Structure formats: structure tokens, C-alpha cells
Amino acid sequence: MIVRSPLVPSLALAAEIERSKIGYMSDRMTAIRSREGNPEGVEIRAFGQAVAFYSRTMPWPAFNTVKGLRNGDADALEDILAFYNERGRRPQFEIVPGLADTGLLRRLSELGCELSGYHTSLYADPSTRSIPAGSALGEPAGITVRELREEEIELYATIHCRGTGLPDDGIRPVAANNRVLFGRPGWKIFLASVHESPAAVGVLHVKDGIASCTFAATLPEYRNRGLQQLLLKRRLEEAAAQGCRLAVSQCAYASQSHRNMERVGMKIGYIRSSWTARN
């Protein structure tokens, strides 16, 4: 029997958490790009140790972000900004504490970028199943969690859009961009229902022993029922079943998502900063 040492915050762990995010984002964007004709105009470009993601039709920061910047990448920043400027997009740079030095931050500022926010990354060892006592994570009467079926992808897209405040005309493109994940190694989508009424979703990506709890959403009328805690628990169980040594997720600090993650036993790995090019 192999006994692993408890996971504790470290620069090595931070780097592994970030690698998992680059991994699932690269795989997701590659899947979207593989649609016939690349209708979303997805591009993925490496600059030194960093990876830049871009989409012509999806202007949100999540799809136009730079991950993986490290000490020594300051010389690549002008090329990265030129890449986005040529495409009419303001990029977001994700900076992980301890992995980027003051020289890199100074150069970002000199090139017209500014601090624009913070985001929290959390982690857990799914094999320990260290769910806090009293967290009441058994499925309550009338609530079920199961894996989503491919023919239900428009249902997923509906919950995605309505749960995040996107208009219903986004349902078809969201469905198309997530349908490509079915049958793709490492991806699973889970659905939570209340008395058989679909209410919430959560996405999981597994690769190289690391599970990433990625997107999640709940319909407004079903919030505050513990559905996202149940979806997190289900994904951690799946990660444990697949032998993962690490599970990660991210959220806004002190948000409801943050509280849900702490309640299922996840801990803060780091709080990254975001830098955005000024207008």
C-alpha cells in the first residue's frame, strides 16, 4: 500500500495546479477549434513558457487569456501583446504568486497593463476523501446527481446560459462548443436534478492523475439547495475512482463557490492576480 504525504501549499504544488489549468484549457480550446471551419476562430500560441488563448467570437477574458508566465518571460510580453492587438483583443495575464518575479510585473506595467483582479485556486487529494464532518453531503430526498448524456447537451447549454446570465440565443453555440467534449478522453459532465427537474451542472477534466473541476452553473430558481456541493463531491469521487493524486478548482475569493469548495474539503493553493491591457 502506497501512503502519500499530505498535500501542503508550495511552489511545486502551485506549478502543478497551474499546469492542470493550462492542460484542460488547451484541450478544451483544441476541441472547439476542431469543429468544421473553426467557427469560433480559436487560436493557441506558445510564447516562451506561456500559452496564449484567443477566440474571435468569444470576447470574454476566459477565452482570451495568457497562462503560464514565469520569471524570464518578460521579453515575450511585447510579442504576446502584438498577437492580441493584431486581433483587436485586450488579453488577460494570469500571474501565479511565487512563479513570476517583480521584473515581469514591472514590464507588464511599462507595456500598459494594470492589475484588474484576483482569483482563488483550491486543491484537494481526492484519495483521502476528507469531507468535513457535519457537511451533510449525502443526496437529500428528491435530489439526484448523474453523468450527463450526449443527447442532453442542449439541456446542459440551457443551464449554462441561464445559470450565468447569458441570453438564450447563446444556447446553440454553447451546446456546439461542448458537444465536442463527449467521447474526448478525460471529460465528463454531471447533472443535478431536483425532483427529476434538471437544475445544475458541473464539468470535470482528468489527465495525468490530476482532476480539474472546471465550469459549473445552477439555474437561479434552484440555488441555495446545496447542489454545487453535491456536484463537487461527485466529481471528487470520480477523481478518486480514477486514481487521481490531485483535484483542483478555481473561483472568486469568498464567493459562494469558494465556500462550497471549502465545505467539501478543498483548501486554498494560491490566489493569483489578473493583469489586463489598458484601453
Rank of each mutant, 00 (worst) to 15 (best):
S255G: 12
P167D: 12
R19P: 01
P6C: 00
E139W: 05
V180P: 05
P59Y: 00
P167W: 06
R235G: 06
M1V: 12
G117Y: 02
A12F: 00
M25P: 00
T102L: 11
F182A: 01
L77S: 05
A12W: 03
L104Y: 13
E86H: 04
G37C: 10
N64C: 06
Q228L: 04
R272E: 14
R70P: 01
K67C: 07
P140E: 07
S197K: 15
R259A: 13
I44H: 08
A239T: 07
D208N: 15
V66A: 01
L191Y: 03
G48A: 08
L122N: 02
F93Q: 03
E16F: 02
T128M: 12
Q242E: 15
T214I: 13
W187N: 05
V3S: 11
T164E: 11
H119R: 10
T65Q: 14
A240K: 14
S130Y: 07
H195F: 12
A46P: 01
T158S: 14
A136T: 00
G68K: 06
W275T: 12
G98A: 02
G142T: 09
S273I: 03
R89A: 13
R278H: 04
D79Q: 15
S135L: 05
I131M: 04
S197L: 11
G112P: 07
G170W: 13
N224K: 15
Y253P: 00
C161S: 14
G243C: 08
S273K: 03
T144G: 13
R278T: 14
I22W: 02
G265L: 08
D168C: 08
M261L: 11
D168R: 10
M261V: 00
E262H: 08
L155R: 11
I95L: 15
L236H: 08
E262Y: 01
A52L: 08
T218F: 07
Q228P: 03
Q242K: 14
I153H: 06
T120S: 14
